[in-house]
């Protein structure tokens, strides 16, 4: 149990700086998810906290102690790797016990702690098996067990679910969350999957090109993205972006007048678009494809100006003919405005 603090943390490989100064304060017991596209530096950041990469500049603190120069084993952390990194020649028991053995714990204590972790993860009957005799989900559990037995202050997860199939991923996601709650341990979790980020995080960090674009609670980030990048990255299908000039429906002038000055782009979430009569519309387009998902339907529209829009409506797409002109509007409160640099303009 510990806080984690990052102060202006930077990483350079040779002359290229890949992490441009990250500040982050993580409270004790908090679940932080770092999310971003591949190559945004999220794994590098995690590995700096783990001590597997050196910190080029700035400071990493775990429990108020500066750990920049501390070896991973002395940082009081445990890490779960993407490919599990289980020792192939050791049994499940030995895999989990290895760290404790090196630490020179008494045999009885090791056995007890490994069995407790195995019970928690439903691995008791597999303790004598080798990793290759286990399924992907079980290997994942062993990797988590190896982290748990060490009773670390901080859990680090490096895309732990990306090697699992979709169904198992959902199940393990819930298990990870439950486990973290139960142990009350601080967790730092890296993923490129925004669904994992939304569901697991107490707070999420959206990273892009070595910068933290936004830090906040998942729903906060979803509702009020700080930049166009965050708005486009979080949410599936992504937010629709338009220039103010694209709003040309009958009701557009009133909406345009309400936009804050300096608006260079506006963003509307697919679920905020609704079908309205022509006289109340701010936008129009024609339905190109509809994807009926059962509970909801995604409609991809083509606009005369050439862009495409996505809207999400509840239920099935009855009554929407292909290529029929559709008139759309969105409540002014749901429309996000962005300036020329792509930063959100917060109405004052």
């Amino acid at each position: 149990m510990a806080t984690v603090g990052l102060t202006d943390v930077r990483k350079t490989f040779g002359r290229t700086e890949v992490i441009h100064g990250i500040d982050l304060e993580i409270a004790d017991g908090e679940f932080i998810v770092i999310v971003g596209p591949s190559g945004c530096g999220k794994s590098t950041l995690l590995r700096m906290v783990a001590g597997l990469e050196t910190v080029s500049a700035g400071e990493v603190r775990i429990g108020e102690r500066r750990v920049n120069e501390v070896e991973p084993m002395d940082r009081d952390i445990a890490m779960v790797f993407q490919n599990y990194a289980l020792y192939p020649h050791m049994s499940v028991f030995d895999n989990m016990a290895y760290g404790l053995r090196i630490a020179g714990r008494p045999k009885a204590e090791i056995a007890e702690r490994v069995r407790a972790a195995a019970r928690m993860l439903q691995l008791e009957e597999y303790l004598d098996r080798r990793p290759r005799q286990l399924s992907g989900g079980q290997r994942q559990r062993v990797a988590m067990g190896r982290a748990i037995v060490r009773k670390p202050a901080v859990f680090l997860f490096d895309e732990p679910l990306s090697n699992l199939d979709a169904k198992l991923r959902v199940q393990m996601r819930l298990e990870i969350k439950a486990l973290q709650r139960e142990l009350g341990v601080t967790a730092l979790y890296v993923t490129h999957d925004q669904v994992e980020a939304m569901t697991l995080a107490d707070r999420m960090v959206v990273m892009n090109e070595g910068r933290a674009e936004q830090v906040g609670a998942p729903l906060e980030v979803y509702a009020r993205p700080a930049t166009m990048f965050v708005a486009g990255f979080i949410g599936s299908p992504p937010m629709n972006f338009l220039a103010p000039a694209d709003l040309n429906g009958a009701a557009a002038p009133a909406l345009l007048a309400a936009l804050p000055p300096g608006t260079a782009a506006i963003g509307i979430r697919p679920e905020h678009l609704e079908l309205v009569p022509a006289d109340r519309a701010v936008l129009s387009g024609s339905a190109r494809y509809t994807e009926a998902l059962g509970a909801e339907t995604l409609i991809h529209l083509a606009r005369p100006e050439g862009q495409t829009l996505t809207m999400r409506i509840a239920g099935s797409p009855e009554g929407i003919a292909p290529d029929a002109p559709l008139h759309l509007a969105a409540a002014p409160a749901t429309i996000r405005a962005f300036d020329r640099e792509g930063r959100a303009i917060v109405p004052t």
Partner: peptide, 12 residues
């Protein structure tokens, strides 16, 4: 590489 890193985290 993760194997070496896991061992490092384990304290080897």
């Amino acid at each position: 590489d993760e194997l070496a890193e896991a061992a490092r985290v384990d304290g080897a």
